[in-house]
Design a protein around this nucleic acid. Structure first.
Length: 971
RNA sequence: GCGCAAGUGGCGGAACUGGUAGACGCGCCAGGUUUAGGUCCUGGUGCCUUCGGGCGUGCGGGUUCGAGUCCCGCCUUGCGCACCA
């Protein structure tokens, strides 16, 4: 390579980097002291004048393929931020553990025919080595792993907390709202004292009930329940999945297998109890609006009313209950629609032929309502979600033969069955108001149904369409009630009040959010800390018997099926281990040792990642999942609410900065918030949200190439050529290929490993390149060729301090000249601001300018400037900075050295360039004193010959913005 | 279809509350070091130009002394939601 022996090459960088990584580890440089718990060191904590900061990365899953250059992006960003704040005098907690249970780990193990623990641990070893080589300033004592019994013991403990809790919607909260989780014993106490009436009103008290009866009552209140429910069964994975894990196309998030609806008994977490708080508290956190919107959409809260429509022909009966967000349009409800799965259909359809008033279009050509409805239901049941979607928005349906009564008009209205109404939302039945709803309009026009406008559309509204906007109510009067003239909001209120008064309906809120299906019929996960007795009653395993360890089984593969086999049944691997399943335990309930059956499901991957950040705070604590003092120190609410929060909002506490990809916007971020709130309600946590500030990082994309068949070819073997005409072409093995940019990975054959970067450039160069590419939130293309720019920066920095020939120090023991001092302090000022705002790319640009300016100093670089530059580079490229700092005579690490502070006096230049414009176009530039008076500047500008030359007819106005701009407006 | 972002040199990207468009880097061009290539160093680099200047931030309008930035309409790309009553 180079003849100069002390040149900053990749080899030298590698030597320096590994040496510093060892020193940091030996010295425990990044150990953050805790105020309490097993590592409690209150004195050390008190030594931090500028407070504390908790920085967090999304919990990584150790993949079998190793890291690619996209993975470290966020880790580097949080590391730079953490190191910067450490230099500002804060006690910074930053670490990283491993989310190692779950489907991908298990699939990888099954593929390679090895035990998942073995492959997972090997993968962790590889990943830990790759990450260590990056030089992240992590507190390595806190590198927890979800698969360790010491960790999942607490995952199980949290499960039991949730299992042994119920949601009391009337309990006051300290934030002024009502509704919170409470220990189930408090519910038992209420029943025992008779403060709460028992469901069966047969005069018996709590003590008179059998243990089965009591269990039934309590189980119906628990925040984790075992329910017979419609679940997403995925034969290809051999397990059921949560709604969040099923894509819009009705396939599994992992593996893209078909998912079928089945009724099965499963564990369900009652996240819906928290729907309101999960939606409302988004106002209190500093997150990207986009992610907040995604969570709000997923929760899908809508305000409206439940209204009951009596059946027209039955003397009595329950009627049809609907949910509507537009009770104001009730006068315009001219028909009703039930979902094909609606349970009332059976009773509603009359025997015999079509009733009087049936139109030809309603019958689908069938002989009778029963035949028509049965055919329609069968057709709907046979359709997958994908097929329903493929049919677009064309409305189909048939008349049920049944009639209902519009409760406000008294009109007899037909009841249809149609698949545009979904059983899974609201009540599975709607009142159809074609005039004010596009879907109902489409159906009404297709089936010749009446349309009555009850909101007056504005002039110019297309009369062949529904009107869904605001306007005065019309045609909305009966003997007791008139909405006419009212706006939508007032009309809703009036109508809801009237319905409530008449007992026909009541205001209601519905949610799209469903309860969280929590069990997986797989092997590689946390066992449920639950056992069943011979009556099928579930008991939590006592705390002192945790963890329930995952047994080693000879056959850990899940039973998977033909992905299309909807009729297959889940079969958990743990069920095959009879010795484990059948167990004799003393639950400590005074009934002695009894025989039980263990739960053979395991928890979903989200379980371990729902709370890992809490364990980071106190990983060695054997008494509690986290010492309350540690939790409130690191995560407790702060004085100030987050930026942009509505006035009066209180800070919810939580992690100070969370960085990760937006793909977890709904899944992980929602589940973790839910668990956190439960633990908060039960008094275990002072914070009320897990992630106060969340930053969604962009992705690094890399070029991928396809050949003429559209197949991806190995990107690293593609050659680039610039033709005579300047056109760039790409070839692979001599044949032309087409370039695109996409996610880095095996499937696009465009892997770039950080290991290659360490070898070719060193970790500092790699870090600098990733941080300099552009804004953190943006996705941007990887370009290995461009990495050299970052290396040149570090080589110049090195040369500014160290003589390449001799290795001797080159810094001058004299003060910088005035100009250098100005550049230095302007850089300090800018870099401080940029690093605080995650503006790493602009910080690097400013540091590059300073570095280049110092390079040009013939005599050498003054120590003051060199040291400040090294300290400012330290968060970004820590190894070279430590090395130069040491060579400049400092024996201690610079990790806790104060970050340079700009001298305000040096931020103002003596002279500035003033731009002189004529009609907004630049005509001249003048060097002027920066404190020049407006009048003097005006004179100077008008005197400019270039300005005079472009003024023919004199001057109308002169706008002066001293000292930087003058704009002359000609007459 | 609805909603939200974003469109700036050959490329990644700068530009604070409207005030010098293109910081910094890649690439490219020229020169230097080197036996040569590469590395490295120095300088140049938006486009056009008759060398006066003209034109330039997706397109078309507008507000303003002055617009990448503000307003209106469109186009493109990306993301999210998608019969949610």
């Amino acid at each position: 390579m180079s003849e100069t022996p002390h040149r900053y090459t990749a080899e030298l960088a590698g030597t320096i980097e590994v040496a510093w990584q060892d020193r940091w580890a030996e010295r425990g440089t990044f150990h953050a002291p805790n105020p309490a718990g097993p590592w409690g060191d209150p004195q050390a904590v008190a030594g931090y004048s500028a407070g504390h900061l908790l920085v967090l990365d999304m919990f990584p899953y150790p993949s079998g393929a190793g890291l690619h250059v996209g993975h470290p992006l966020g880790y580097i960003a949080t590391d730079v931020y953490a190191r910067f704040h450490r230099m500002l005098g804060r006690n910074v907690l930053h670490c990283l553990g491993y989310d190692a249970f779950g489907l991908p780990a298990e699939q990888y193990a099954v593929q390679t025919g090895q035990h998942p623990r073995k492959t997972t641990e090997e993968n962790i070893t590889i990943m830990a080595r790759q990450l260590r080589r990056l030089g992240l300033g992590h507190d390595d004592r806190r590198a927890i792993r979800t698969i360790d019994p010491d960790y999942y013991r607490w995952t199980q403990w949290i499960f039991l907390q949730i299992f042994n809790a119920w949601y009391d919607p009337d309990a006051p909260r300290e934030d002024g709202g009502t509704g919170r989780a409470r220990p189930i014993e408090e519910l038992v106490e209420q029943y025992r004292r008779g403060e709460r009436s028992l469901p069966a009103e047969d005069g018996r008290g709590w003590e008179d009930l059998s243990h089965v009866e009591r269990a039934e009552i309590l189980d119906a209140h628990r925040l984790v329940q075992s329910l017979e429910a419609t679940v997403n069964w995925c034969p290809g994975l051999g397990t059921v999945l949560a709604n969040e894990e099923v894509t819009n196309e009705g396939r599994s998030d992992r593996g893209n297998f078909p998912v079928f609806r089945r009724n099965l008994r499963q564990w369900v977490m009652r996240i819906t109890e928290y729907a309101d708080r999960l939606a409302d508290d988004l106002d209190r956190v500093n997150w990207p609006e986009k992610v907040k919107t995604m969570q709000r959409n997923w929760i899908g809260r809508s305000q409206g009313a439940h209204v009951t429509f009596p059946l027209a022909d039955a003397a009595s009966g329950p009627g049809i209950e609907v949910f509507t967000t537009r009770p104001d349009t009730l006068f315009g409800a001219t028909f009703m629609v039930l979902a094909p799965e609606h349970p009332l259909l059976e009773a509603l359809v009359p025997d015999g032929g079509w009733p009087a008033g049936t139109r030809e279009a309603w019958t689908a050509g069938a002989e009778s309502p029963r035949a028509a409805v049965e055919a329609y239901r069968a057709a709907a049941a046979a359709k997958t979600d994908l097929e329903r979607q493929a049919e677009g928005k064309a409305k189909t349906g048939v008349f049920t033969g049944g009639w209902a009564t519009n409760p406000v008009t008294g009109a007899r209205i037909p009841v249809f069955v149609a698949d545009y109404v979904l059983m899974g939302y609201g009540t599975g039945a709607i009142m159809a108001v074609p005039a004010q709803d596009e879907r109902d309009w489409d159906f009404a026009t297709a089936y010749e149904l009446p349309i009555v406008r009850t909101v007056q559309p504005p002039a110019g509204h297309d009369e062949s369409t529904a009107f869904t906007g605001d306007g005065p109510a019309v045609n909305s009067t009966n003997d007791e009630l008139s909405l006419d003239g009212l706006g939508v909001a007032d009309a809703k209120e009036r109508m809801t009040a009237w319905l409530e008064e008449k007992g026909l309906g009541r205001g209601a809120v519905t949610y799209k959010l469903r309860d969280w299906l929590f069990a997986r019929q797989r092997y590689w996960g946390e066992p449920f800390p639950v056992v069943f007795d011979e009556d099928g009653i579930a008991y939590g395993v006592p705390e002192d018997q945790l963890p329930v360890e995952l047994p080693d089984v000879p056959d850990y593969s899940p039973r998977v099926y033909d992905p299309e086999d909807a009729e297959s049944e889940p079969e958990p691997p743990l069920a095959r281990d009879r010795d484990w399943v059948e167990v004799e335990l003393d639950l400590g309930d005074g009934r002695g040792r009894r025989r039980f059956r263990r739960d053979t499901n395991v928890m979903p991957q989200w379980a371990g990642s729902c709370w890992y950040y809490l364990r980071y705070l106190d990983p060695a604590n054997a008494e509690a999942l986290v010492d309350p003092e540690n939790e409130s120190y690191w995560m407790g609410p702060r004085e100030q609410p987050v930026a942009g929060a509505p006035t009066g909002t209180r800070d919810p506490g939580g992690v100070d900065l969370y960085v990760g990809g937006v793909e977890h916007a709904v899944l992980h971020l929602l589940y973790a918030r839910f668990w956190h709130k439960v633990l908060h309600d039960l008094g275990h946590l002072s914070s009320d949200e897990p992630f106060r500030t969340y930053f969604a990082q962009g992705y690094i994309q890399a070029p991928a190439y396809t050949d003429e068949r559209g197949q991806y070819v190995e990107a690293s073997a593609v050659e680039e050529e610039v033709g005579e005409d300047g056109q760039v072409t790409f070839t692979y093995a001599g044949r032309p290929v087409t370039r695109e940019f996409g996610k880095i990975g095996k499937s696009l054959k465009n892997m770039v490993s950080p290991d290659d970067m360490y070898a070719a450039y060193g970790a500092d160069t790699f870090r600098l390149y990733e941080m300099g590419m552009g804004p953190l939130e943006q996705s941007k293309p990887w370009d290995t060729r461009a990495v050299v720019g970052s290396q040149r920066f570090l080589q110049r920095l090195w040369r500014n301090v160290v003589d390449e020939e001799t290795g001797a120090l080159r810094v001058l023991e004299e003060a910088p000249d005035a100009q250098t001092a100005r550049v230095l302090h302007r850089t300090i000022d800018a870099v401080r601001t940029d690093l605080g705002e995650l503006g790493f790319n602009t910080a690097i640009a400013r540091l590059t300018e300073l570095n280049n300016a110092l390079t040009k100093l013939e005599a050498g670089v003054p120590r003051e400037a060199a040291e400040a530059l090294v300290l400012m580079v330290a968060p970004l490229a820590p190894h070279i900075a430590e090395e130069l700092w040491m060579r400049m005579g400092h024996p201690d690490s610079l990790a806790h050295e104060p970050f340079p502070v700009a001298d305000p006096a040096l931020l103002v230049d003596e002279t500035v360039t003033c731009v002189v414009q004529v009609r907004g176009k630049v005509r001249d530039r003048l060097e002027v004193p920066s404190d020049i008076a407006e009048d003097a500047l005006r004179e100077l500008a008008l005197a400019s010959p270039k300005v005079q030359a472009s003024l023919d007819n004199g001057v109308r106005t002169v706008i002066v913005r001293a000292p930087k701009l003058v704009n002359v407006v000609p007459a």
